[in-house]
Design a protein around this nucleic acid. Structure first.
Lengths: 177, 177
DNA sequence: AAAGTCGGTTCGTTCATTGAACTGACGAGC
DNA sequence: GCTCGTCAGTTCAATGAACGAACCGACTTT
């Protein structure tokens, strides 16, 4: 989507939220941030997004306080983008959207999310509650692994790293492939 | 957002979902459908959306099975758009998005949602569970009323109808104003 | 010294959105 | 029978956003 101006007249917190994350690509950038993507180039190859659009989205997500730009090496100067509290609070939205997409438009399950710290093999429920231990699992304790419908041989290196089980938010390590 | 083509390569149910409901205005149309809006003209005045865009969105939402076009009078032929099962399943997403927007970008609460059938005055929790009777409230039992931050004198007639408490999905009756 | 990487910016083309005007089917009032 | 109004769109020209390719500057590697 585009201009916040038009939504501003809506008097509605859904409209307000969409002003921030409703533009094309924005929610996919945030999703990737949950999956551990942090660097400009990794977003670029994983999403297949035009460079200018990615730069613009990272910019507005940063100024809106969803992502935080953080220097991780001095020379050459390199920054990574990580989710803030405000960004982490988007997980229920992304999860709900993903479940809706899976239930209604996807044949096979592409990713499985489960509770990392309790040893269960069953998938998390609708609101991230663990079917075994019953607690609501915090994002950082969610383990993501490929589902039966996942492509076993994806083209880009980021997707290949994601074939291995990993926790949400845990940074992508490209060298490990 | 725009073209589904680009997201198709994403192998992800979130991307798949965004192909359907990720375009500009689409989620606001669906939100209005939950609020009881059903007719072309009511969407038009309540959203302030360009006519051509509204026609396009209703068209794709209908062909994707989120809305259903239903003849409600023969002469002149008039149709209304109502949520299908698939559309109703979007409520958790909209609710999560609205809570995020309210928690992070809105000062005052604009709308309150609570359990209609148990007489509570407390608001529904994060996952539509009732704080009094403890059950997860189905969408049709959710009562919507204006919150303390709502504009008491809105310009368009649809918003004025929404100042009165009403259940979600219950059709808007314009004559009642 | 030359080539490569990373994180962008610039730019011309294509595509989507916008708002205003128009259409066509019908009903209501005179 | 004629005019006016409503509803649900369609058409159109102008603007704005997205796209992809090329370029750039700071640095590292060979």
């Amino acid at each position: 989507m585009a201009l916040g101006k038009d939504y501003a007249s809506q008097e509605c917190s859904i409209a307000r939220a969409l002003e921030i994350v409703g533009e094309r690509w924005t929610l996919l950038v945030v999703r990737d941030a949950f999956y551990g993507v942090r660097r400009y180039n990794d977003f670029l190859v994983h999403l297949g997004i035009p460079r200018a659009v990615l730069a613009a989205r990272l910019q507005t997500l940063t100024t809106e306080g969803v992502l935080e730009k953080r220097r991780y090496q001095q020379s050459p100067p390199r920054d990574e983008y990580v989710l803030t509290e405000r960004g982490l609070a988007l997980w229920p939205t992304l999860r709900a959207l993903g479940l809706w997409g899976r239930d209604h438009f996807t044949d096979a399950q592409l990713r499985v999310f489960r509770h990392a710290t309790c040893g269960t093999e069953r998938e998390l429920g609708r609101y991230d509650e663990c079917p075994d231990c019953g607690t609501v699992v915090p994002v950082s304790d969610v383990e993501m692994l490929p589902g039966p419908g996942a492509d076993p041989n994806p083209a880009d290196p980021i997707s290949r790293v994601m074939l291995k089980p990993k926790r949400l938010l845990e940074p992508i390590e490209l060298e490990s492939v």
